[in-house]
């Protein structure tokens, strides 16, 4: 029967057709397809891996940023505290300095006043001396008009000196 006994013509053409098909596909077909499928699989794998890494990096970056923000915040607080402290310190210092300056000023004024007072005293004393001498001279002049009064006074003064 024909189906069970291979016919030469069909075997011949089948061999040629199959060989031709194989050569064409082995040269231009399968290697391209397999290479591309491998390449695409590799690319997808790499893509997945890269995405994972990127995600990880993003997570890391986010944590890092968070850390920095936290740090900056704490530093800001620190700085604010520092500034406040410095402010009060400066104010304190300024106040002390002002007090000191005022004191100095006052001291200088006191000295000047003292000096002026002393000068005034001195001047006053000489004035008073001069006045008293003038008065005394006048008194003496008036009293010296009679001789008795003059002698009496001289005696009295002499007594006084003797007593002393």
């Amino acid at each position: 029967m024909e189906l069970f006994t291979p016919d030469f013509g069909l075997v011949f053409w089948m061999f040629i057709a199959f060989l031709l098909l194989f050569l064409v596909l082995a040269k231009w077909g399968w290697p391209v397809i397999i290479k591309m499928m491998d390449k695409r699989a590799a690319t997808i794998d790499r893509g997945v891996e890269e995405a994972r890494q990127a995600h990880e990096q993003l997570e890391n970056a986010r944590a890092e940023a968070e850390k920095y923000v936290q740090e900056a915040r704490s530093r800001q607080a620190e700085m604010l505290r520092e500034t406040a402290r410095m402010k009060s310190e400066i104010i304190e210092q300024a106040r002390a300095e002002a007090q000191e300056a005022a004191k100095k000023e006052m001291d200088a004024a006191k000295i000047a006043i003292e000096q002026a007072r002393k000068e005034a005293e001195l001047q006053f004393r000489t004035e008073v001396g001069r006045f008293s001498i003038d008065i005394a001279e006048k008194m003496v002049r008036s009293r010296m008009q009679d001789d008795k009064a003059q002698t009496e006074l001289v005696n009295k003064l002499l007594d006084e000196i003797e007593k002393n």
Partner: peptide, 30 residues
């Protein structure tokens, strides 16, 4: 000795062309 292009041989060629068309089509696509 008979190497006629019979119905089966012709169908064989059609199938060969069909497979080449499919495979090279995909290769060209890539």
């Amino acid at each position: 000795l008979d190497i006629s292009i019979t119905k089966n041989v012709a169908a064989l060629f059609i199938v060969v062309l069909l497979v080449i068309w499919m495979v090279l089509g995909l290769a060209n696509y890539y």
